[in-house]
């Protein structure tokens, strides 16, 4: 009760508490209580949390109104866990990017690079900076550009060896071991969302300086395997993925573990949303039903699964 009293700002000016604010207050109160529990016995709380994930009971019992009161990241994570309870073919992952919220910090780009251990020259999610208008009415806009995970992906049929395909959840995947590196898919993608790995490394030509962290440590880091497509790809010589086409995969390896894509969690403006559009209660389903939603180059009929809010 003491916590509830602290949350009076949620009340309306007249003193009456709206249903929405009341539920929000309840959720926040729960969050505070959970935090206190966490501080007292972190291992027990985390163990219980993981158990809920394993059992698939996390988030159960909370109404959609409860979820809406949470931070969007927490809400999306719970919705993600809920979606994972369904068969893969019933999920439809989409990403929504709110252009008004994006501040062009490029944290998502770097988060993606770190998560997937991308070498120089390989980027899955650049942020395009656009300046438009005429002085004095000038504005800037930032457009993050992940892979659009098109429903009709032009990059798939052009592959001569079936090395790229749409999986059951609608994510366009790569089979690095099969890809011959012809780069036909790069030319076919209308969003330039595919890149080729030319085998560069950050540390290759760096001098070794004694007493500092050193090239060797950095080198070890960049040669550590990533976990794309649920496999481990250590960076060794000319082995795949060097020589292959590469692309954003919505951090599928994280999704399947119940973790949101790296670009979503690193977005400091909460401008990137992710979830199952087949779940009518999900945040993304809500967002893509808005009238200010758009998709890039829709005239090509690719049916992108990345939506932008203008």
């Amino acid at each position: 009760m003491a916590e509830q009293e602290k949350l009076t700002p949620h009340s309306t000016a007249s003193g009456a508490v709206s249903r929405r604010n009341f539920l929000g207050a309840l959720a926040a109160a729960g969050a505070v209580a959970a935090f206190e529990q966490l501080a007292a016995n972190p291992q027990a709380v985390l163990a219980a949390y993981e158990e809920q994930i394993v059992q698939g009971t996390l988030g159960q019992g909370r109404s959609s109104a409860d979820l809406k009161a949470l931070d969007v990241l927490e809400r999306m994570r719970l919705e993600l866990l809920r979606a994972l309870q369904k068969p893969a073919s019933e999920r439809r992952w989409v990403m929504v990017i709110d252009l008004r919220k994006c501040i062009g910090c490029h944290a998502c780009t770097i988060g993606c690079v770190a998560e997937n251990k991308l070498p120089p020259g390989v980027v899955y999610r650049p942020v395009i900076e656009e300046e438009f208008g005429t002085y004095p009415n000038v504005a800037r806009r930032f457009i993050p550009r992940p892979c659009m995970q098109c429903e009709n992906p032009p990059c798939v049929p052009v592959c001569p060896v079936n090395a790229t395909y749409t999986n059951a959840e609608g994510i366009v995947e790569m089979d690095y071991e099969r890809c011959i590196g012809c780069r036909y898919c790069l030319t076919a993608c209308p969003y330039s969302a595919r890149v080729s790995d030319f085998g560069f490394t950050y540390t290759e030509e760096l001098p070794v300086i004694q007493g500092l962290l050193g090239t060797a440590t950095a080198d070890d880091y960049e040669r550590a395997p990533n976990f794309e497509y649920g496999k481990q790809y250590a960076r060794q010589g000319r082995a795949s993925p060097v020589g292959n086409a590469r692309k954003c995969h919505f951090c599928q390896h994280r999704i399947l573990e119940g973790v949101l894509p790296a670009c979503v969690t690193t977005c400091i403006g909460r401008a990137t949303f992710f979830g199952d559009a087949n779940d009518p209660e999900s945040l993304v389903a809500e967002l893509i039903a808005r009238p200010n939603v758009l998709r890039l180059r829709e005239e090509l009929g690719t049916e992108p699964r990345v939506y932008y809010l203008k």
Binding site: V161, N162, A245
Partner: peptide
């Protein structure tokens, strides 16, 4: 011009005739 020309035989074994 191929990134992995040693895999050229994939075009015979894993052929996709949509391409």
């Amino acid at each position: 011009d191929l990134g992995h020309f040693e895999r050229f035989w994939h075009v015979y074994v894993y052929a996709d005739f949509d391409s």
